[in-house]
Computed example of a mutant assay.
Amino acid sequence: MKINLRYFASVREAVGMGQEAVELPADAGTVGAVRGLLAARGGAWAEALAPERPVRMAYNQVMCGPETKVEEGAEVAFFPPVTGG
Rank of each mutant, 00 (worst) to 15 (best):
74 A>C: 12
83 T>G: 14
18 G>I: 05
4 N>V: 12
16 G>C: 03
14 A>M: 03
42 G>C: 12
35 R>I: 03
40 A>C: 08
15 V>R: 00
57 M>D: 01
83 T>N: 09
41 R>Q: 11
25 P>N: 12
30 T>E: 02
18 G>N: 08
22 V>K: 06
84 G>Y: 10
23 E>C: 05
83 T>P: 08
68 T>G: 04
85 G>F: 03
3 I>M: 10
80 P>C: 09
30 T>L: 04
37 L>K: 04
58 A>I: 04
38 L>K: 01
64 C>Y: 03
76 V>I: 15
69 K>T: 12
51 P>K: 05
78 F>G: 00
79 F>A: 01
84 G>R: 13
14 A>Q: 11
21 A>G: 12
19 Q>S: 14
85 G>S: 11
48 A>V: 05
6 R>I: 10
85 G>R: 12
77 A>T: 01
73 G>V: 10
21 A>K: 07
81 P>R: 09
21 A>V: 11
15 V>E: 00
69 K>I: 09
79 F>W: 06
58 A>Q: 07
5 L>S: 05
55 V>M: 02
70 V>I: 15
52 E>A: 15
32 G>I: 04
35 R>K: 14
18 G>K: 10
5 L>A: 08
13 E>P: 01
50 A>Y: 05
63 M>P: 03
29 G>S: 03
37 L>G: 06
76 V>S: 05
18 G>E: 11
76 V>T: 10
46 A>I: 10
72 E>Q: 14
43 G>D: 14
72 E>Y: 07
13 E>I: 04
35 R>P: 02
70 V>A: 06
64 C>V: 02
68 T>F: 05
46 A>M: 07
77 A>G: 03
67 E>F: 06
